[in-house]
């Protein structure tokens, strides 16, 4: 088994780091890093929205995705579309009709798996803002190599050399034991490149396990924050 550029195992994630509540003006914010990839998410809302966007039955969700350099193009609009639909899947929008929830994402560093990073950052920012959610969304990317093997959480260089890539997001609705995959349904899935159906199923399984680990990390991080703030009070 070839070792990867940064010495990781094939199914090993990079170092996760999450910092919340770092923006004063936003209702919720989070900066999420996976190794050298880093995305900042800010959530505004639920707040009043423009007349034509107002939905009498549910909250209206908007996502703005800003790349590290340059202006947002068609590629970024597509990412916004995917992230928006993912957020709509977890947010209890019917609890806040006639309002708008905006998610602003800024890529601070891109070293691969940016979409997964962005979804994770969004999830933590939504929690930070106190938006009611069905569960915690966790996302991860898996690359299918030319050799047919899978690698978890690819770097930018690994992404470019890969035959295909799968980014999946799962909803974690209750705490799970570490390492035990739940039969969770895939909330979001986008792929690029070519690979076989078997490789796809394998990546879903890898994704599921990795996402439950990410969700566990998130919960630990939130509990620690909770305990910390209670101590200060």
């Amino acid at each position: 088994m070839e070792s990867r550029e940064d010495g990781r195992e094939d199914n090993q994630m990079r170092q996760l780091a999450c910092e919340r509540n770092l923006l004063n003006r936003a209702d919720g914010s989070a900066r999420w890093s996976q190794g050298q990839s880093c995305v900042l998410a800010a959530v505004y809302g639920p707040r009043s929205t423009v007349g034509r966007k107002e939905n009498p039955e549910q909250a209206n969700i908007e996502v703005v995705f800003k790349p590290k350099i340059g202006f947002a193009g068609v590629e970024e609009h597509e990412l916004e579309h995917v992230i928006r639909k993912t957020v709509e899947g977890v947010v209890l929008t019917s609890l806040h009709p006639r309002t708008g929830i905006s998610v602003i994402l800024q890529v601070l560093q891109n070293d691969g798996s940016v979409l997964a990073c962005a979804i994770n950052a969004t999830s933590m920012a939504l929690i930070d803002a106190g938006v009611p959610l069905k569960g915690l969304v966790a996302a991860v990317a898996i690359a299918v190599q030319e050799s047919g093997g899978l690698i978890l959480d690819p770097l930018l260089t690994e992404q470019k050399l890969a035959r295909g890539m799968v980014t999946v997001a799962f909803v974690d609705a209750q705490p799970t034991e570490a390492g035990v995959p739940t039969e969770a349904d895939t909330l979001t899935c986008t792929t690029s490149g070519l690979f076989s159906a078997d490789q796809y199923l394998d990546s879903l399984n890898w994704g599921r396990t990795a996402c439950s680990r990410i969700a566990a990390f998130c919960r630990v991080s939130l509990e620690r924050y909770q305990r910390g703030s209670q101590m200060l009070a």
Binding site: K85, E183, T186, T191, L194, A197
Partner: peptide, 21 residues
């Protein structure tokens, strides 16, 4: 028979492996 793309953008429900297959 190779997968060129599998695209499921969020939505109100998730899809189990069985449904995807």
């Amino acid at each position: 028979g190779e997968l060129v793309s599998v695209y499921k953008p969020g939505g109100n429900v998730g899809a189990s492996d069985a449904i995807l297959m």
